[in-house]
Design a protein around this nucleic acid. Structure first.
Lengths: 188, 188
DNA sequence: TTACTTACTTACTAATAAGTAAGTATATTT
DNA sequence: AAATATACTTACTTATTAGTAAGTAAGTAA
């Protein structure tokens, strides 16, 4: 089914944020892409922060769903990990988008304070998803790593976020070598 | 000795970029901080891209010096590594700045094309510095890791960049757990 | 002492930004 | 059929931005 105007605005805003950051797109940019007027975007999201909240909420919902899905034991752990890593692969393939955390972290102090909990929850949800995969995979003897799973999850999240950024600057090969080292470190 | 106006402008611009990104500061912000007028900043750096070039050149010079310095064998390899990691520590301690690569990677596509080589060179210089340390430390038997040193350097660069960002969103503890895992992985 | 350079200030322009108030067409409810 | 809600458009305001042209005061060189 086609997206509603509201959903389209969120999708375009998310894309702009991950392409150029929160401060480098305007309501006009989105209006043009949808063939509507500036004020129509304000109708759906009165302030820019409302639009960001929309992006954040949609994204957190998505991660929460993935946490639920990853509780089922119908697929093996490497496939679950790859499902997580696919998010970064998709960003790389969509014209080298950086991840939402990476983009918004830089802009964080220019954002209204009350949006920080929303971003915090989003990143927690993402990290919890990966933590759960790592924990269970280690218990099942499929992955090996030292320390607590949430610390390893933090390392992988930050590495992948950085990998998308390094790929922009030095080329996509950097992304591949970083990703493959992270995987190797889990299965050796 | 005190900084010249030109040097002060570069220092402030660098700080703004690492605090909020390239698109979230204006010439006016810098002018106010220096107690001069808008146009005085334009006198030293006619276009904003000229100012960014100034920041990039200064930073690359700094990294090139570090590569030279790290060739001397007067200190041990863990100290050399810590000298590299200190850059990230300093950013964390200066009000949670992100690193220059991390900040500019997000803004990259909003920048004039001809500045990309300058950013590329900067990040190459930084990565080469770390690669050299890792290579020599492994040859000397002080560090242990699989694969080529430049790949491991890419992993560490991206992880540390991401760690500064994750620290902003989830808290500074994330930075410490990521950094300590990277070090542990080199000496075990 | 005259010419020239450096490092600015004053005073502007043009473009772009977020945001708003009021009006309109279409569909839905009462 | 009348009232109301939805999803916009038209037309605007205010603020901020990069950038410029012209002027000036202080130093340097010929």
């Amino acid at each position: 089914m086609p997206l509603s105007t509201r959903e389209s605005i969120i999708a375009l805003a998310e894309n702009h944020i991950q392409q150029n950051g929160y401060n480098a797109f305007s309501y006009y940019d989105i209006a043009v892409q949808l063939g509507i007027k500036n004020a129509a975007v304000h109708y759906h999201f009165p302030k820019k922060k409302d639009l960001l909240k929309g992006v954040l909420d949609k994204s957190e919902q998505h991660f929460q769903n993935m946490v639920e899905l990853s509780k089922h034991n119908d697929i093996n752990y490497m496939d679950k990990l790859n499902r997580f890593l696919k998010i970064y692969d998709d960003n790389l393939n969509r014209q080298n988008r950086v991840c939402l955390m990476g983009a918004l972290a830089t802009d964080l102090f220019t954002l209204p304070d009350h949006l920080r909990p929303a971003l915090n929850q989003l990143v927690e949800a993402m990290k919890n998803w990966l933590t759960q995969i790592l924990e269970e995979a280690r218990n099942a003897g499929e992955f090996k790593f030292d320390g607590v799973a949430s610390d390893r999850a933090a390392l992988i999240c930050s590495s992948m976020a950085g990998a998308l950024q390094l790929a922009r600057v030095l080329g996509n090969k950097e992304y591949e070598v970083i990703k493959s080292q992270l995987i190797k470190d889990l299965i050796k």
